[in-house]
Design a binder for these strands. Sequence first.
DNA 1: AAGTGGTCTAGACCACCTG
DNA 2: AGGTGGTCTAGACCACTTA
Lengths: 255, 255
Amino acid sequence: MSEAALAAPMSSSALPATPSFLPLYQQIKALLMRSLQAGEWRAGEVIPSEVELAARFKVSQGTVRKAIDELATENLLVRRQGKGTFVATHAEEKIQYRFLRLTPDDATSAGMQRRLLDCRRMRAPADVLRALEMKSGEAVVELRRLLLAEGRPVVLDDIWLHGALFKGLSAEKLAGYRGPMYSLFETEFGVRMIRAEEKIRSVAAGADEAALLAVPVGTPLLSVERLSFTYGDKPVELRRGLYNTAHHHYRNVLS
Amino acid sequence: MSEAALAAPMSSSALPATPSFLPLYQQIKALLMRSLQAGEWRAGEVIPSEVELAARFKVSQGTVRKAIDELATENLLVRRQGKGTFVATHAEEKIQYRFLRLTPDDATSAGMQRRLLDCRRMRAPADVLRALEMKSGEAVVELRRLLLAEGRPVVLDDIWLHGALFKGLSAEKLAGYRGPMYSLFETEFGVRMIRAEEKIRSVAAGADEAALLAVPVGTPLLSVERLSFTYGDKPVELRRGLYNTAHHHYRNVLS
DNA sequence: AAGTGGTCTAGACCACCTG
DNA sequence: AGGTGGTCTAGACCACTTA
């Protein structure tokens, strides 16, 4: 297909009209992303091999490879030599709590326990509505939960989920699930969090929060507001966390 | 050089004995990194073209390209189509304050003013010594400064610099310099910060800090401890910042 | 042995920048 | 026009995994 493709990349047959005039590998990347979004392959599954994809898209293996490279560095895919390329998942034992940057000061590290405090369906408050880009009147699922380290509460999370995408989410379902919440979201609702933005500030504990975190009122807490996105940069979760940083810290790497 | 290289990559002539048995492009990458560290090309300068490097190292352009790709994604190099590949610098107008993640809540954004409060040379305190991997008794330069947004103090930084690397750093030199501190470090001392780790917690303002930041004692502040590294993962700067997050927040992106 | 991703090459052409 | 990085191809071989 060389000459045709070079003259007018992605021109006539074989491929749907993506924006075009993008580099070939970008178009392949977009097509792969679309397949991921459409659920053609599920979280944790293998995707077709590079040569197979090259044949499907009628391009060389190197071009497919470059597309997959980018998706891998964006953590949408995971390469495993000799085995294949897999759809990234939050369920991986090793990479659990991918989005939680809180670390114990002395790296005893023993994982955290969860305690669900509240779970209800409701009309979205105005600010949540705006953050999740929802239409006025639409429903959200509201959660409140604690994370505990060695029995002591460290994180208080208030969570709002796009209602339409999380139909049937209940306290029972959450309680009966081992492993990270984002993993449940993948398997039960087919919603995969691929990116998030956090805004962090320092605040004083109010009465409620102080009681739940077992600290005096006015204790300085880390306020972490997280907006999480699925495919297509669609925001689907807003989370307001209060972290007790007496024996933990939020770690970050700059480069 | 094809057959020889394939049989025993980086074998005899032309190339110093790097670890070897690493992929060729990783060896090239290491060599480029060494040249950067040695100061063969300075911050902001062009490095030789891909074809030239390919000739020097006796490998194909594609291999050099892959090495440069990695260095570019690690922000050590910057590619500019048609012009060449450049050594990354903190002086770039656009990418100024690369390591400062503080953002105004309403994106008025006007850059921040600096005010140097203190600058002295001293024996390193124990914790600073340990963080900078220095020998007991070695000297550090200690700085204290404020960052102000629209005239109001927002950040109070205490900074310790590896003394041996920053000989001759003085209050005058700092005061008379426009542009980010890290840029001065590059041009005056040849020390380039390429990576940093931050530990963030929430603390209450003490008496001194409250006065300097013009907030009541006990105000919740963001404590940001940053350890910055040059080439070879050598730590050269420790920084303890206190951020007033009343009208600013620390932003972070997770992926 | 066969299949997968990973490395390396050589050569073509494109897009951008500078003299 | 000539140089630079950017894209794409085709084919060879390596390293790892599974059966």
